[in-house]
Design a protein around this nucleic acid. Structure first.
Lengths: 106, 106
DNA sequence: AATTTGCGAAACCGATCGGCTGCATTTATA
DNA sequence: TATAAATGCAGCCGATCGGTTTCGCAAATT
């Protein structure tokens, strides 16, 4: 299934997983210990995160290390870029509304 | 209902709405013209975006102008900050996995 | 005063979500 | 070789999602 990064980070548990393994790769069991839900539930989240390439796996014997593909996080940053340009130049938000209304009245 | 910014931007239509009205406030009807779905469907999206303070309303007669609260977009930027620090300093992702495994073997 | 316009709320619907339990498989250990 | 450990998958469930149609209401227009 083709997944979307924005849909992946919508869930708070998945965001917590991302933050947890950002610095160090971890196994599903080790990750699950940090949460209240079951290991299988975490496993599902890992699958979703993997499907949109936010995570990659490295098998080591019977253990599987999941690590964050930090490059993929830049996708979100790129999307934010268009708005970053705006909030860096906009000083008075009210101008926005008023000009819109004025243009419409013409 | 208390809404979450990350859940709000998970939907592609809502992201398109955000981009559409980023520069200029618009009415629900005007926004809906840019999409295939019904006006009521767009109205639902506007409600969700409003509930997490991404949008604000300005009534003008019987028309309601929705405008993006660009400040709220910074919430996403703030969340990305923790990862931005990482991708700016990490040159070799492989180091990450290997050190994790090594630490585990101790 | 009657009609049109702009909008939101409610009710419904199939699809998906996020959690669970149970099971199968592979690898390590006793 | 038998057992334990690590993991993923399938199926179930109630809740939520995103869409639609129908309706009601207030403001503008005729």
């Amino acid at each position: 299934m083709r997944r979307d990064v924005f849909q992946a980070i919508a869930d708070p548990t998945r965001r917590a997983i991302i933050a947890l393994i950002a610095l160090q790769a971890m196994t599903p069991n080790a990750i699950a210990e940090h949460f209240d839900s079951t290991r299988q539930s975490i496993s599902k989240h890992l699958r979703i995160l993997s499907e949109c390439d936010l995570l990659s796996k490295t098998q080591q014997g019977r253990e599987i290390y999941y690590q964050l593909q930090i490059e993929k996080m830049k996708d979100i940053d790129k999307w934010l870029d268009q708005f970053r340009k705006i909030w860096e130049t906009r000083f008075n938000q009210l101008d926005n509304v008023l000009s819109a209304i004025k243009n419409n009245k013409k």
